[in-house]
């Protein structure tokens, strides 16, 4: 009985950690701009593919250049880092093309839902042209786990070693991000812009730079997430990031839009709720996330940890 409970907790934490990572990417951008970047899912895919390529993986037969690969074979940690930077750079590009022109013209923020989605469609389809639609898996032992057992037994509950690792890295990334937001100069600037962009500008904070930083960081988070998921499972075609993106959206709202701890708690709650579904009802799992979201929105519109706030007029 206790074993089953522990197993459920572990399962919930394992998937919840990933959800939190995805939701955090949205959160950073939402907190400074008040909009949602629908290209986030595509950046997630991109991170996975970049990690694969930097590990020395070759393009499959359905890609544009079959058999081609980068002339490097980086160790996993480095590949993950480079891929995260790459996704961050593309995140910046998305800001440049899909967000900045609209902001300059003072257009409705709603428009960026569409432009960012367009950026995502372009990105996913370019990935597909380049890499083909086949699934890719990272080389075995790429993460240097070859000498560890495939799964760990913790108090009678079983979890794959790679997922423990994934959870640890996500936790580190999240903790690092929180500390940085809390203590660094640019982190404080970002929080100031999130609080009130106009006042922040009056105080001499360069809000354009802060927005770019937010896109860079959230692109990096997406890239990191994609690379880690690629390690844990595999890259199930260029669309694989999109479903994570959708789930992340639910987590984002569940935790409270724009709240960093909210995204983490929301992710864990979501992971746990899914782990609790009995097998007979497992078909309804994807509805559960949204049913919870729906209930939370209706009962407590500011999310689990969001601030109750009046609409800015």
């Amino acid at each position: 009985m206790i074993e089953a409970l522990l197993q459920t907790l572990l399962n919930g934490a394992a998937s919840g950690g990933v959800y939190a990572l995805v939701a955090l990417g949205y959160t950073l951008i939402f907190s400074v701009l008040g909009v949602i970047n629908f290209a986030q899912g595509a950046l997630f895919s991109l991170g996975g593919y970049l990690t694969y390529l930097f590990l020395g993986g070759k393009i499959g037969v359905n890609g544009a250049l079959p058999g081609w690969g980068l002339p490097v074979g980086l160790p996993f940690w480095l590949a993950l880092l480079v891929a995260a930077l790459g996704s961050g750079a593309v995140g910046l590009l998305v800001e440049r093309i899909a967000f900045a022109p609209l902001r300059r013209r003072g257009a409705e923020p709603l428009l960026s839902l569409i432009t960012s989605l367009g950026a995502g469609v372009v990105l996913v389809n370019l990935l597909q042209l380049l890499m083909g639609a086949e699934g890719y898996a990272f080389p075995q032992g790429a993460a240097g786990l070859a000498h560890l057992p495939e799964s760990l037994l913790i108090g009678g509950a079983r979890i794959r070693t790679i997922q423990v690792l994934l959870l640890a890295i996500s936790a580190l990334a999240v903790a690092g991000l929180s500390l940085w937001l809390e203590n660094s100069r640019s982190g404080k600037a970002m929080r100031a812009v999130a609080e009130d962009a106009t006042t922040a500008t009056l105080l001499g904070i360069n809000s354009v730079a802060v927005v770019r930083l937010a896109f860079l960081l959230s692109g990096m988070l997406a890239g990191l997430g994609g690379g880690l998921i690629g390690m844990s499972v595999s890259l199930a075609g260029p669309y694989f990031g999109i479903s994570y993106g959708l789930k992340g959206l639910a987590v984002l709202v569940l935790g409270g839009l724009g709240s960093v701890p909210g995204a983490i708690v929301g992710g864990l709650v979501m992971g746990l709720a899914e782990a609790l579904i009995p097998a007979e009802a497992s078909g309804w799992r994807d509805a559960l996330a949204f049913a919870i979201l729906f209930a939370v929105l209706v009962l407590r519109p500011s999310g689990l940890l969001g601030r109750r706030q009046l609409e800015k007029v």
């Binding site: 899909a98 428009l111 569409i114 367009g118 950026a119 469609v121 372009v122 990105l123």
Partner: peptide, 10 residues
């Protein structure tokens, strides 16, 4: 198609 959606509103 994605480019149209991306650049149309811009």
């Amino acid at each position: 198609f994605g480019l149209v959606i991306l650049l149309g509103p811009v």
